[in-house]
Computed example of a mutant assay.
Amino acid sequence: MNAVDPGLIALLILAPIILAMIVQCYIAHRYTERFESFLTNCTFVTGNKKTFQHAGLLGKVMRTGLISMMLAMPTIFLRRGLIDLNEVKRFPPNMRRLLVSMLGIHIVLLIALTIFHYVYR
Rank of each mutant, 00 (worst) to 15 (best):
D5G: 02
D5A: 12
D5P: 04
P6V: 14
G7W: 01
A10I: 01
A10V: 00
L12P: 01
L14M: 06
P16C: 09
P16M: 02
I17M: 14
I18C: 13
L19Q: 07
L19P: 02
A20H: 10
A20D: 12
V23E: 11
V23I: 05
Q24L: 14
C25K: 14
Y26A: 15
Y26Q: 10
Y26I: 15
I27W: 09
I27P: 04
I27R: 11
I27E: 13
A28R: 08
R30T: 15
Y31Q: 13
R34E: 15
R34T: 14
F35W: 10
E36Q: 13
S37F: 09
T40Y: 07
T40C: 02
N41C: 07
T43N: 08
V45W: 03
T46R: 15
N48Q: 06
K49P: 00
K50P: 00
T51N: 03
Q53I: 12
H54D: 13
G56N: 11
L58V: 12
L58F: 12
L58S: 11
G59S: 03
R63T: 09
G65F: 04
L66I: 08
I67Y: 02
S68G: 09
L71Y: 04
A72W: 09
A72L: 14
T75P: 00
L78A: 04
L78I: 00
G81C: 07
L82W: 07
L85K: 08
N86L: 09
K89H: 13
R90Q: 14
F91Y: 13
F91S: 05
N94D: 10
R96N: 09
L99G: 15
L99Y: 05
V100D: 04
S101H: 04
M102G: 00
G104E: 11
I107G: 05
V108E: 06
T114V: 08
T114Y: 12
I115Y: 04
H117Y: 14
Y118P: 02
Y118G: 00
V119F: 05
R121Y: 03
R121D: 01
